[in-house]
């Protein structure tokens, strides 16, 4: 058999999967976004009407802004926690066994389903929840804190709880690859801990930070369930707005919104990849 055919055969399985499960759905969504819907039936078409509707509605801008706000806040908190936890695990826990044990501890929440972990916050944060009861019986507050549940606070708290591990893992992975002698070399040059952090550790973990950022951003941008449950229906994300459209059978409009969301996410990810050459650094 000649080499070209062999190469094609080697590519085939992956290509089939990608085309079947990514290519076709994506093409469907894109083409659907140009169709028309008269309330009863869908007509294949090539109209920009759906996009015009999406763009001209201030609600769209609001929910995009809201989703990006969630994503950025969650990302910032996850980054700080993820970096700190990794830093502690790598540079303070010198014993490999303890390091592995603590790392596994971070993954314990993942032993149960996302939904259960999310729902568990409700009895904890509610008006009559554990936390409020504890605060009141300790005498810190007279009235239960309202903002704890069904609020932006609850949404972001849940995001951070669910997604921080996706930040910890890549940062940890990048950090353990740092040669300890490189840090000693910086010490030898007279650098303080802060200078080492800034000039050595952060630059050398930027691949991990970039990967973690991509994970957290895309996870938050793609969520509709957490927002709906934890905000008590008061807040909307792009995807939950899309879901509303779908529930009302406005498929073409939902598709247009989906294309817009994909564009935003692709733009963000490619911006990150422009700054950090993840592939080249992972190959090291």
């Amino acid at each position: 058999m000649n080499k070209t055919i062999i190469s094609w055969l080697q590519v085939l399985p992956m290509a089939t999967i990608l085309i079947a499960f990514v290519g076709i759905p994506l093409a469907t969504v894109v083409s659907l976004s140009f169709w028309t819907f008269d309330g009863l039936e869908y007509y294949p078409d090539f109209t920009f009407e759906n996009y015009t509707k999406v763009f001209s509605s201030w609600v769209t801008w609001k929910i995009f802004f809201n989703t990006i706000r969630y994503a950025v806040i969650t990302w910032a908190i996850a980054l700080v926690i993820g970096f700190t936890v990794s830093y502690y695990l790598v540079f303070h826990v010198r014993n490999l066994k303890i390091q592995i044990a603590l790392f596994l501890l971070c993954t314990i929440p993942f032993w149960t389903s996302t939904v259960i972990r999310m729902i568990s916050w409700i009895p904890f944060l509610g008006r009559e929840g554990l936390f409020n009861n504890a605060l009141m019986s300790a005498g810190f507050v007279d009235q239960p804190l309202e903002f704890l549940l069904f609020s932006d606070f609850a949404v972001i708290l849940t995001y951070v709880n669910l997604f921080t591990l996706f930040m910890i893992v890549p940062i940890f992975n990048a950090m353990v690859k740092i040669n300890p002698n490189v840090i000693e070399a910086a010490l030898d040059a007279g650098a303080s801990q802060i200078q080492i952090l800034w000039n050595v550790i952060i630059p050398l973990t930027r691949t991990g930070i970039a990967l973690g950022t991509i994970f957290v951003m895309t996870l938050v941008m793609g969520d509709f369930f957490i927002v709906r449950v934890m905000s008590g229906g008061q807040s909307t994300s792009v995807v939950s707005a899309m879901k509303n459209n779908i529930d009302q059978l406005f498929y073409p409009q939902a598709a247009a919104m989906a294309v817009l969301l994909i564009a935003v996410v692709v733009f963000m990810v490619s911006a990150i990849l422009r700054v950090v050459d993840v592939r080249a650094e992972l190959a090291k």
Binding site: N179, V182, E184, D188, G190
Partner: peptide, 20 residues
């Protein structure tokens, strides 16, 4: 005295250059 302040410089066996 802190390392880096004592007038010494250490060259590492694996050189430990800053890869970035």
């Amino acid at each position: 005295m802190r390392t880096g302040e004592r007038g010494t410089a250490l060259m590492f066996q694996d050189y430990a250059l800053f890869p970035h």
